[in-house]
Simulated assay, not measured.
Amino acid sequence: MVNAEISYRVPYADTDQMGVVYYANFFVYFERVRNELLRNMGLPYTLLESDGLMLPVASANCDYKMPAKYDDELLIKASITELKGCRMLVTNEVYNQNGDLLVIGGTTHCFVSSDTRRPVKIPTQVLTLFNNYEEKN
């Protein structure tokens, strides 16, 4: 399985009037760690785009267990849990500095041709990078 994690200290701008992270910001956090995940695989978005591919979000979900607050040091994790057809499922978890699970969720992406804007089968090069990464780790 391909994994990545990042640390992120919650700035005041990410919080709402109650002093907790605004719920939609977790999807931004998912995007940040997903970038690292793809980069770790050797597949940054710039490479996908230069190969004529896009990776839009087809669905997103988030289950909030506990709030994250201003100045919390978060550990944001991502793993690719499925590659099938044209879809890639990325599962995310967010923990606070005490190790408490705050959020679990994920995003499903569809590989799409930038020319036709239509779904395409996951390219062989992507599957190869995925498999090579799994073998090394």
Results as ranks from 00 to 15, higher is better:
residue 1 M to A: 06
residue 1 M to G: 12
residue 2 V to Q: 11
residue 3 N to K: 11
residue 3 N to M: 10
residue 4 A to V: 00
residue 4 A to M: 05
residue 5 E to A: 13
residue 6 I to D: 02
residue 6 I to T: 14
residue 7 S to L: 13
residue 9 R to W: 12
residue 10 V to I: 12
residue 11 P to T: 05
residue 13 A to Q: 15
residue 13 A to S: 07
residue 14 D to M: 08
residue 16 D to T: 03
residue 19 G to P: 13
residue 19 G to K: 12
residue 20 V to I: 14
residue 20 V to H: 08
residue 22 Y to M: 15
residue 24 A to V: 04
residue 25 N to H: 05
residue 26 F to S: 02
residue 26 F to A: 00
residue 27 F to Y: 14
residue 30 F to R: 05
residue 35 N to Q: 14
residue 36 E to F: 07
residue 36 E to Y: 10
residue 36 E to Q: 08
residue 37 L to T: 14
residue 39 R to F: 07
residue 42 G to C: 13
residue 42 G to S: 07
residue 45 Y to P: 00
residue 46 T to Y: 08
residue 47 L to I: 13
residue 48 L to I: 03
residue 51 D to S: 10
residue 53 L to Q: 02
residue 53 L to K: 01
residue 57 V to P: 01
residue 57 V to M: 03
residue 58 A to Q: 01
residue 58 A to L: 10
residue 64 Y to F: 15
residue 65 K to C: 12
residue 68 A to Q: 01
residue 69 K to I: 03
residue 73 E to K: 09
residue 74 L to Y: 07
residue 74 L to P: 13
residue 82 E to G: 09
residue 86 C to F: 09
residue 87 R to H: 06
residue 91 T to D: 02
residue 92 N to F: 03
residue 93 E to K: 15
residue 94 V to T: 03
residue 96 N to D: 08
residue 98 N to E: 12
residue 98 N to A: 12
residue 102 L to I: 00
residue 103 V to S: 03
residue 104 I to M: 13
residue 105 G to F: 12
residue 105 G to R: 06
residue 107 T to H: 00
residue 108 T to S: 02
residue 110 C to W: 01
residue 113 S to C: 06
residue 114 S to G: 00
residue 118 R to H: 00
residue 120 V to H: 00
residue 123 P to S: 09
residue 124 T to H: 15
residue 124 T to D: 14
residue 126 V to T: 06
residue 128 T to A: 11
residue 128 T to K: 11
residue 129 L to G: 15
residue 130 F to V: 11
residue 131 N to H: 15
residue 131 N to W: 11
residue 133 Y to R: 09
residue 134 E to G: 10
residue 134 E to V: 15
residue 135 E to Q: 15
residue 135 E to D: 09
residue 136 K to H: 14
